[in-house]
């Protein structure tokens, strides 16, 4: 391959990686808030499914992508409310309630899809922005300045969530509640309220990530659209050590590996593509296994808070 071709390839992989990392960022940063407050929400995948369906349905039936996204986020909030009621108020085991939420979202989205749409339909999808001369720049124009608006929102979310978590009193409370809820309580923080807020916020972001897939990436809906991205998002939270910029790193790494893998599939190599598909997932597992920093995890993760618990 000539130098030119290689540069072109790298540019293409990076451009795609930036676009496909957006749903991971939404879902993983949402999950980060949830986990920072002490709630492990394993239902992300199901919330993304339902978010993807709701956004697509309204974008398709009413021809308004904006309406679709807003309603998807609203449905995400309802799913978050359900999750927090079950795991914060009723103190259910979070691993199980999350799996329940996943299956609920998956089942409902699939059923509604069969009822209301039923076949392969597609929409125009969210347009890429044209940012004037910025988009005309050589290399950078394509790489950075020709994405749809949700991509910019996803990347903006990283510094914003960092600021919220580390520079506002709400963020301080979130960090305290997920690590030492009793101490937070004795200082006047309403532990369960903060957890409700975080789980609902996290679910809204997960639904937005799902919506991205159907109205900005695939421009269609199918039962296997989300394809495990919700679970990858949960893994990215661990990968990123519960820090927004860590999650950004993980999402980019995973997306680039994925882009590379896809190029490899179509590059005409005789190496069996089934094996290359594993590559990004394998990478995540290896990095997770090698990077167990002991004191990063919120210490009260998965532990419901009970003020009058004697022990």
């Amino acid at each position: 391959m000539a130098i030119n071709e290689i540069l072109n390839l790298i540019l293409r992989i990076l451009t795609v990686a930036i676009a496909v990392s957006a749903p991971y960022l939404f879902a993983a940063i949402g999950e980060m808030f949830s986990q920072k407050s002490g709630v492990l929400n394993l239902g992300v995948e199901g919330i993304m499914m339902l978010g993807a369906f709701v956004a697509f349905y309204f974008a398709w039936a009413y021809e308004s992508i904006l309406l679709g996204i807003i309603l998807a986020v609203f449905v995400g909030a309802l799913m978050g409310l359900l999750m927090s009621f079950v795991s914060v108020t009723l103190k259910a085991k979070q691993g199980i309630s999350g799996i329940g939420l996943y299956m609920f979202g998956w089942g409902v989205a699939g059923t509604l899809f069969r009822l209301f749409i039923g076949g392969v339909e597609d929409i125009a999808g969210l347009p890429n922005l044209h940012l004037g001369f910025l988009s005309e720049l050589p290399i950078l124009g394509k790489l950075l300045f020709s994405h749809n608006i949700l991509v910019y929102l996803a990347f903006l979310l990283v510094p914003i969530s960092w600021y919220v978590l580390y520079k506002t009193s709400w963020g301080l409370k979130v960090r305290a509640v997920g690590s030492t809820p009793r101490a937070a309580d004795t200082m006047g923080t309403n532990v369960n309220k903060i957890r409700y807020q975080c789980v609902i916020l996290g679910s809204m972001l997960a639904a937005l990530g799902g919506a991205y897939l159907s109205v900005a990436q695939a421009n269609m809906f199918a039962n296997d659209l989300v394809a495990g991205r919700g679970f990858i998002a949960v893994a990215l939270v661990y990968f990123g050590r519960w820090k927004p910029f860590g999650i950004l790193k993980g999402a980019m790494l995973f997306s680039i590996a994925n882009g590379f893998q896809r190029w490899y599939q179509i590059s005409g190599s005789t190496f069996p593509y089934e094996v290359t598909v594993i590559f990004p997932y394998l990478l995540i597992i290896i990095v997770l296994a090698l990077s167990h920093e002991k004191f990063a995890e919120p210490t009260a993760l998965t532990v419901p808070y009970d003020r009058e618990f004697k022990g």
């Binding site: 009193s169 409370k173 690590s179 030492t180 200082m187 004191f295």
Partner: peptide, 25 residues
């Protein structure tokens, strides 16, 4: 002790304070 080990002394005190602004401490 009712302290959050992963926070600083200042942050532990700040937990109990109602700040004027929601957007900064």
């Amino acid at each position: 002790f009712m302290l959050v080990p992963s926070l600083t002394v200042t942050e532990n005190v700040a937990l109990g304070i109602k700040f004027k602004s929601k957007f900064s401490m």
